[in-house]
Design a protein around this nucleic acid. Structure first.
Lengths: 134, 134
DNA sequence: GGCAACCCGGTACCTGACTACAGGGCGTTA
DNA sequence: TAACGCCCTGTAGTCAGGTACCGGGTTGCC
């Protein structure tokens, strides 16, 4: 009659696959919960919040290794907010770099598509010729 | 004394790993070259250009499957430049979507980092609290 | 007590683009 | 003809983040 949740219930509430819950446990992202006499995991409601934390951090671009760092910092009584801020700023740089890369691609492709009238056969296609240049 | 190139020479000239050349052959991105009596691949200079084509298309964001499509269109005598243009424009959209995703991430992280003074312990860290929200 | 629904651990598979390794053969030069 | 470097095939491993499957055990409800 306790409020313990099974793995499936945690997965449902967190909006992830059951296998994902076990995967996160293997990765150390969520603590090993107590077990029932029969070996079933018995989670408290914290587990759901923990998985949501992971998912939100992922949405912000953090890898699971980085999420692990965030969780470690959070768990560390001596952890400084400045370190978390550092990770966030590093990630912002990271993302900015990816955006720059993608913008370069987009600009190049835009230019190619604009130069290409889309007329005639591929033998005359300026896009293909550009890719083929030496 | 012919100008035939070995796999390693092609790889060097195209700036890729030898294994990559064979991988591209398995994927059908480069045609199977003739062989020497002993079984060595004998490439013409086209092979190097072909691999560079692949690499350039990749730099523009095309996957190898998509590069294959481009090559197929190019090889097709009836291929229309308009189809290549379509692929390029679709890729532009694709890239634009990724940029939007990344910009959302960056904006969120920027806001979190700005709100976080980086003072005090992680217990007070507004970034961690944001990730922990329900 | 029967039965469906669920969970267990362990292992294997997925995508994408390579990259590495093992064990053996070829090519060229001395 | 020996030696050395390069090439051959085939298989397996890498990264990230899961997801699927299997044979079996557990829970909970009627």
């Amino acid at each position: 009659m306790s409020t313990a949740l099974t793995t499936g219930e945690v997965a449902d509430r967190a909006g992830v696959n059951l296998q994902t819950v076990r995967y996160y446990e293997r990765r150390g992202l969520i603590p090993e919960p107590p077990r029932s006499a029969g070996g079933f995991r018995q989670y408290g409601p914290d587990a759901v919040r923990r998985i949501r934390f992971v998912k939100r951090a992922q949405e912000l671009g953090f890898s699971l290794d980085e999420v692990d760092e965030l969780l470690t910092l959070r768990a560390d009584a001596d952890g400084q907010a400045a370190e978390v801020r550092e990770l966030a700023l590093a990630k912002v740089d990271d993302i900015a770099g990816k955006i720059r890369d993608l913008e370069r691609m987009r600009a190049s492709l835009d230019a190619l598509a604009a130069a290409c009238g889309g007329q005639g056969s591929t033998a005359d296609c300026s896009i293909l010729h550009a890719l083929d240049d030496d």
